[in-house]
Structures are given as C-alpha cells and as structure tokens.
Design a protein around this nucleic acid. Sequence first.
DNA 1: GGATCCATGTAGCGACGCTACATCGTGACG
DNA 2: CGTCACGATGTAGCGTCGCTACATGGATCC
Lengths: 300, 300
Amino acid sequence: MDPRGLETLRAVGTQGGVTAAAAVLHVTPSAVSQQVALLQREVGVPLTERVGRGVRLTSAGEALAAAAVDVAVALERARAACDEFVARPQGVVRVSAFQSGAQLLLPALLTRVASIDGITLECTDEDVAQDDFVALTDRMDVVVAHRPDDGAGWAAQGVLVVPLLREPLDLAVPLDHPLADRAEVRPEDLRGLSWIAVREGFPVAGVLGAVGAQSGAAPRILHRVNDFHVVEALVAAGHGVSLLPRYTFGGGAHVRLVPLAGVRAGRRIDALLRRDRAERLVVRRVLDELRALAAEIDVA
Amino acid sequence: MDPRGLETLRAVGTQGGVTAAAAVLHVTPSAVSQQVALLQREVGVPLTERVGRGVRLTSAGEALAAAAVDVAVALERARAACDEFVARPQGVVRVSAFQSGAQLLLPALLTRVASIDGITLECTDEDVAQDDFVALTDRMDVVVAHRPDDGAGWAAQGVLVVPLLREPLDLAVPLDHPLADRAEVRPEDLRGLSWIAVREGFPVAGVLGAVGAQSGAAPRILHRVNDFHVVEALVAAGHGVSLLPRYTFGGGAHVRLVPLAGVRAGRRIDALLRRDRAERLVVRRVLDELRALAAEIDVA
DNA sequence: GGATCCATGTAGCGACGCTACATCGTGACG
DNA sequence: CGTCACGATGTAGCGTCGCTACATGGATCC
C-alpha cells in the first residue's frame, strides 16, 4: 500500500479522470492507470468504474481516497516533527489567487515573506469557475478563492478552508454619473440601470441577482466580463454600471464606488489548502502571514 | 519520506539497535543502516547517535519514530476502509503468548477462530522478561502478556494494551501437605515454608515478595524456575511450595491449590498490540474472540 | 591486546515504476 | 451512420532504487 499510489488514486478522484490526474502529478496517464491497477489488485475490490469514456471512483475508491488524505497528513506531520529540530521553517510554497485577490494580497504577502529567510514563494493567478477552486489544491499549496457572501461555501472534501476576509461589493459608476456623488445608494435607486456582470458560474455572479431582487426588478445585464479591470474600463467609459470589490478598486481614479445600503452585497475571500499541505511548517508560516495581512485590510 | 523507512527507524528504536531491527524486519543490517541514512539525509537532522558499539535514536529520531506509528495507523486504516467493502475479514494473524497463558487461552482461541472462514492463526509461545513483551509486538500481531496485579503496567509507547483477565495466584502445595485441606490460607500460615519462585525480572516475581512481607518474614526461596509445569512437578514431589495461577493449574491432580486470604495475589493478563496492527479488521476480529474467551474464564 | 560484536560503507544484481507507443472503446459531428 | 477525437489501458524497454554479500572501522569484553 504505497502512499504514492494512494495519492494517485486521490488525484483521479478530485481531478475526475486519469488524464487530468496525470497532469497534476506530472506523469503519463499510463503511469496513473498502472498505479491504480496495482492498488486495486492489492485491495481486491474495484476502485474505479468506467463512465462514458472516462472513469469515476467507486464507493470503495472514495473511501480509500478519503483515507489517503489521512496518510498524507500523517506523513507530513512526520516531516514536521523533524522540522521542529531543524531551526526555522524553509522551503518553497506555491500560492495561487484569483485575479483581483492576487492584486489585493500577493504584493503585500511577498513583501512580508521576503523578510523571512529561507521561504520562497511561487505565485500564480488562477481565475476559475466557482466549483473548480478546490481542484486547484492538488497543484498549489495555498489557493486564495472567493465566493458570494451567503454562498454555501466549498464542498469540503478533506480540504481546509481558512477565512481571510469579507470584502463588500460597491456600486461602480462613471465619475459623471448621477449617483456618483451619493454617500450610499439603496436598491430602489438601481432600477433602470444597465449592468456589467461576471459570467455565470463564476464567483459573485449571483450577488447581482440578489441585489436586483431587492430593487424589485430584474437587472438588465448588457455585458458579461470576468476581468474587473476590463469592467472598470467599461464602466468608466459609460457602458454600464457594475459591482466592484471595495478594497481592490476603491483607490482607482477612473470610477466611483458607492456603498450599497439596505442590501448585503459582498464576497468572502478564503484560503483553501489540502490538509496534508497544512501540516508543512512553511505553509503554516505563509498562511499566518496571509491571515495577518487580510486582517489588516479587513479592519481598514 | 518512505513509510518503509519510517518503519525501519521505528524498529531500530524499539529493538534498540540496527542488527536487532534487521532481524524483526527480515533484512540485513546493512539495509537497515542504509534506510536510516537515507531518511536522515532527507530530513537533515541526525536521527541516530552512537552509544558504545550500538546506536540509539536521537530526540529527533524519537519524534520521527512516534510520527511513524501514525503513518502506519493511517495506512492500515486505509486498507481497512477497503476491507469494509470486501465481505468479511480475512488474512493471517500472528499471536504469541507466554507459556501458561498460551496453555490457558490458545486452544480455545484456535477452536473459536477455526469456525470463522478465511482467518488463519499463527501461534507461538514466547516467554520473555517483563520488559521485553512490548518488543515482541514488532514481530507479532497480538502479544498475550502478563504482569503482577499491582504492577505499573507497560511502558506504553504507542502500544495498545487490552486487558483480558485477572488470574488469582494460589498457594500450590503437595496433596499430602498439612495445608492441603484448608479452604484458604492466611499470610501468617506461610511462615517457614520453602518456596519455588520464578526468576528475577520475570512477571509475578515480585508477588511472592509482597506476600512474604505480609507474613512478617521474608520467604525462603530454594529454587527459581520459570516453567510452571516444572514448578508443579517439583511441588508435587515435595520440594517446596509455590504460587500458581488458579485457572491454568486448578484442574491438575498433582498439586492442591489453596486460595490466599488477607493478601491480594494475582496477575493481570493483557493483550499487547501495535496501534497500526489494531487497525486491521482481522486482528480486531481475533482480538474480540480473545476478549470474549477471557471474559468467560474470568467469571468462572 | 586479541577476539568479538556492531554499525557502516561498496559492488553487483534484481525488481519495480516510469515513458513511449499501440490498441480499444466511447461519445461528438458532419 | 461513418469518421474523428478523446480517454483509458495494455506492452516493451529502460533507468533507478533497494536489497544482499562482503569488507572496513570502532568499541567492548576477557
């Protein structure tokens, strides 16, 4: 019962296929297939079943994959047990964040960590659909993800969720917009506006709908743009209004952010990481910095 | 961080040396040495230190060895997670017991388990000094051990202790002895007797001393014999009296067992097993039978 | 101080797991 | 309904890793 094989099985489960698993493990699909077959012969029960032209874990496979995390956790804990004796944590930590989160957090995080000797940060921006954030934890140590304020959260299948901060979503209007000088706007003020929203399935896509429901009329959505900078440019040019995160775009000179009153609009920013990764001392250290950093922003 | 390497390190710790560890792992000392060296290079801290002509685990080594158990537990739990799906438990379980415990328990245990299909029992009798019982758990799945009634128990370093039963120690006298017809004897009746005891360091060696203290005079020990059958033969031939376990030797026709009153004399019989072994479904099943069996004897 | 025991290096060999390639089955599309 | 594309799985070949056997270096016991 090789931990490597267990990890492979787990990846097949989370990535939803042999080829995808092979990609995150940096091996060929054949190797993954062989590993799973080996494991299967060892335990004597089918671990995967064909569905269409792909595969899926059987219930036994799911059970084994769940147990695989515990093995990984135990292994990392063993490694950490030794690290206690070898001075301070060191190593490389891979951090990914969605675009605007990266803009908000990564520069300051890198600054903080740069002062710690021995820790190397590898950052990436990964903006994916809501459901795909957890899958990123297979490639990354820490995944900064966002979700709607009231959202159900993450399908926490052995993945650790560390809340970082809540960021309000404000109404973004051009500088010369009638609402631009208001201290705040209420849902009923929003009727008749033309909106720029994010694509369906992406985080905070549902927030606009909720706000619209409060205003009494369904919002008229003209464009669907995921990149907030593009949204900002469109809003500035008078092509519509939008909801933009306060901390990330509050300082911009191109648009005016007006707080929403009478309706709760915001997004939650969390750090997602696999339980075994969380056992690494370096990862914990970076996570601590990230949380401290987020706390500073949150009180601001 | 290979579990096999961790297991090797653990064995070096519990067995107290490379050669001894190699013996229980069925490999050459060279292989053990290489494994430890490899592990050491991986974690970057010394795991062993030379002491005399042997080695000992450093504090880091101890920590890692302790963590190694958790890894083994997690691995076995993973295996067990699959076994839930594959009908009933099966496999081979190695059971060892000290001589008189083996006589008392193993026949009935084998009978019980024989009716369960798929479980194979490998039994051994291993009578070792009190301190060496835990080390046996590296070679065995279940180790039946005994200790004095009031004894401090086992240095439970990650080893599981399952109490089985308490067996009173009675005074064993020849059939024609003056005390043979007594319903019970009190400590003061024991003054002036010639004793046959077990060797120092072996279980229940101290019990006789405690009984002697109650009688007011140190018992006169003529012989030191570990095998209770030899003791029985010696007692029967009139070469002295002894303390013998009630359930194991009560039915014998060669000596008379007279209960002791006014002093607590007995031994505790426990099952010892490594935590990871306890995760195996088969082992649990056998252990259940063993406990049920012991409970029957205990109420008798 | 010689004999012995224990741990540790070194050479060689076997086994295991990977890659590359071929094959088979399944779903998508014209 | 045939063709194409994709995904999983076998097979051959090769590199690597870990083991055994043997030799070496200390440390202890008599």
